[in-house]
Design a protein around this nucleic acid. Sequence first.
DNA 1: CTTGACTCTGGACCTGGGTCCATACTGCAG
DNA 2: CTGCAGTATGGACCCAGGTCCAGAGTCAAG
Lengths: 134, 134
Amino acid sequence: MTTLGIGQLAKRAGVGIDTVRYYERDGLLSPATRLESGYRRYGDAELKRLHFIRRAKALGFSLEDIRGLLALSEERDVATVKQVAESKLVDIEQRIAELERIRSGLHTLIAACPGHGRAEDCPILNALTGQERV
Amino acid sequence: MTTLGIGQLAKRAGVGIDTVRYYERDGLLSPATRLESGYRRYGDAELKRLHFIRRAKALGFSLEDIRGLLALSEERDVATVKQVAESKLVDIEQRIAELERIRSGLHTLIAACPGHGRAEDCPILNALTGQERV
DNA sequence: CTTGACTCTGGACCTGGGTCCATACTGCAG
DNA sequence: CTGCAGTATGGACCCAGGTCCAGAGTCAAG
C-alpha cells in the first residue's frame, strides 16, 4: 500500500498543500495516520476522497455540499444522493437563467448603441441613468 | 431642489445606509455637500448616480467596472462605453457556458441514476469517486 | 427642554475558499 | 554528519461587497 506525505498527495490531486490542510480543518479529509513526528500520512482511500472533493467542486458543489455528499456516500444512500444532485441541478439552472436575463439586457443595449455620437443617444448610459427601461 | 440625508437617499435607492458610506469610501459616490455638523447631504444628481450604480450592478458589473463606467459617462465617451459593455457581455457569456457545461454533466449523471439500489450502481457516486468519467 | 430618531467616525467582522508567513522541527541523500 | 527539502503549527491576509458596532454628537417634534 502506497502511503503519501502531504506534498505528494497534493501533487497527485493537483491542489496546493495548504488546500489539503484547509480541507482537514474544514472536516473533509483527515490523514490516515501520523508519524511520531506529526507528519501526515495518506493512503489510497484519502487520495480517492480528495479526487472526489475536486470533482464535486468542478460540478459546482460547495465544500458544505461536499461534506454532505461524503457523509451520504458513506451511508451508501443512493436515493438521497440523487436528490441532492437534483437540487443542485435546479440551483445551477437558476443561476443560468439569471445570467441569461442579464445577457439579454446587455445585448439589447449594445445592439441599440451606435457607438459614437452624443452621450444622450447612448442607450447604455441612458439605461443606467434611468432614462429608459432595460 | 430636494436635498436628502443619507437615510432618505439610501431608502429611495433601496440600499442600506452602510452601503452608501461604503460606496463613498470606494470612490463611487460623494455627498453634494455636508452640514456644519458633518451630516451628508445629497441632491438629485447623487440619487441618479446611486441608481446608476445599482442598475449597473444588476447587469453584472463589478464596482470596479462601475467606477470606470462613471468616469466614461462623465467624459461622454460613447465608443468606450460600448466596448466596456461588450466585454462584459463576453464575460457573462463565458460564465453561462461554464454553468451549461456543469449542468449537462450533472444532468447526464442524474438521468443515469436509478435512485435506489447499491451504491456501486449509482453513477453520481461513481463519477465522483472516479470509477467513470463525467 | 427633552426625547427619540438620525448621523458621525473608525474599525471589526462576515462569507468561501483558499494562500502565505514565521519559526521550528524532521527526513533523506550524499 | 551535513545540508536542504519537506513538514509542523497557529495565525494573518486576500478577494468583493458589504454589515455591524460603540460611543459620541445632532436634528426636529412636542
